[in-house]
């Protein structure tokens, strides 16, 4: 059995400042971006087909899920497994299609950047990615399109908002497996442009993300999306409770080994999911740090906080499409459908 992962928080940066949730006065200040439809700040920013963030998604990325799908891009093959989680992703994909997004903006925890928040601005990331921990499950040939204009706008906005950022334009940087897995499960045809954000944390130094900074980064993403008039889905890729089996026993997809790590982890995940289902997002925001303390939740990397901050922590919305375990970790596929909402 794994032991608890000791976490020491990094010092919060002093140079950041926060924009109140829902504050769109920045649009008046910047005037939006030329060539893109930007609604006036005092008008509804989107209708059913208007621009803005149309949905937020919690999209966990265990490589087992991609392995189980047997896509042609992945070298290893499987007999399946984790079907209920994968069926939820299948349902989700149908709903994503209905939303007709221009772009998926993803924050995932395994593009680890020691200094600052990076945005992938490579127009066509292409390559072969071997998962370092489960190389027998994920060796994937990727090839996708970046919405470079939005990627740069998010980096610029985050920088304006006081975060340390970098625009990554180097084609040699290998795309990490979490980004690949989450994006594949959301859009296996890879026909929706992408913006990929890094995680400013550092597992070998035992540091974790500053959730405050992640909230600012979420607000920056929202401002950039609205400023360019994109219809965007924002996806945060985190598992929930994150203790897991220390050894792989037999065939990876043998589901007889699959269950919650322990009752404590499961109960805390359910407490979190109860709040999501009830749309009690203010309480959820309060609970995330405690859930991390209790379960070593991967949300310590900040992807969930980033995504909800991009949505403006909306009340009375939120669906849990499914919950399942992968080598004992808790994984929920959740959707915040923002269509028709301010």
């Amino acid at each position: 059995m794994s032991r608890a992962f000791p976490v020491i928080s990094v010092r919060a940066m002093s140079s950041v400042f926060k924009v109140p949730v829902g504050d769109r006065t920045w649009q008046r200040r910047t005037g939006g971006s030329p060539g893109h439809p930007t609604p006036a700040a005092d008008e509804p920013v989107r209708d059913c087909r208007g621009p803005g963030i149309v949905a937020g998604i919690l999209a966990p990325h265990p490589p087992q899920l991609l392995y189980a799908e047997n896509p042609s891009q992945n070298e290893p093959t499987s007999e399946g497994g984790w079907e209920v989680l994968r069926w939820a992703y299948e349902d989700l994909r149908r709903r994503i299609r209905e939303m007709e997004p221009d772009v998926i903006v993803l924050h995932a925890p395994h593009w680890i950047t020691m200094v600052g928040h990076h945005v992938n601005c490579v127009p066509n990331p292409k390559g072969f990615s071997v998962e370092p921990i489960f190389p027998h499950l994920l060796r994937y040939r990727y090839d996708f399109r970046t919405d470079v204009e939005l990627a740069e706008a998010i980096a610029d906005q985050a920088s304006d908002d006081g975060l340390v950022t970098r625009k990554m334009r180097n084609e040699g940087v290998r795309v990490d497996y979490a980004t690949i897995t989450a994006l594949h499960l959301l859009s296996p045809d890879w026909d929706i442009p992408v913006v990929s954000l890094s995680a400013n944390n550092n597992p070998y130094f035992y540091s974790t993300s500053s959730l405050d900074q992640m909230e600012i980064l979420g607000e920056s993403a929202r401002k950039a999306i609205e400023g360019l008039g994109r219809r965007a889905i924002v996806a945060g890729s985190n598992s929930l409770s994150h203790l897991h089996w220390e050894r792989e026993l037999g065939l990876p997809e043998d589901m007889t080994y699959e269950h919650a790590y322990n009752h404590h982890q499961y109960r805390w995940d359910m407490r979190l999911l109860d709040l999501i289902r009830a749309g009690r997002t203010r309480e959820l925001r309060e609970m995330i740090p405690e859930h991390i303390r209790q379960t070593e939740s991967e949300t310590k990397a900040g992807s969930l906080s980033w995504m909800l901050s991009a949505l403006g922590w909306p009340e009375d919305v939120g669906e849990v499409l499914t919950y399942g375990t992968v080598i004992g970790t808790g994984n929920a596929v959740c959707l915040w459908d923002m269509r028709g909402r301010q």
Partner: peptide
């Protein structure tokens, strides 16, 4: 080289390539 399952021992006889660090690429 941090991992979470067991202790990985590298057995590839020849490791060749170009690593572009994901933080220091510039």
């Amino acid at each position: 080289w941090f991992t979470v399952l067991g202790h990985q021992v590298q057995l590839d006889p020849r490791l060749r390539g170009v690593r572009v660090d994901e933080n220091w690429y510039d």
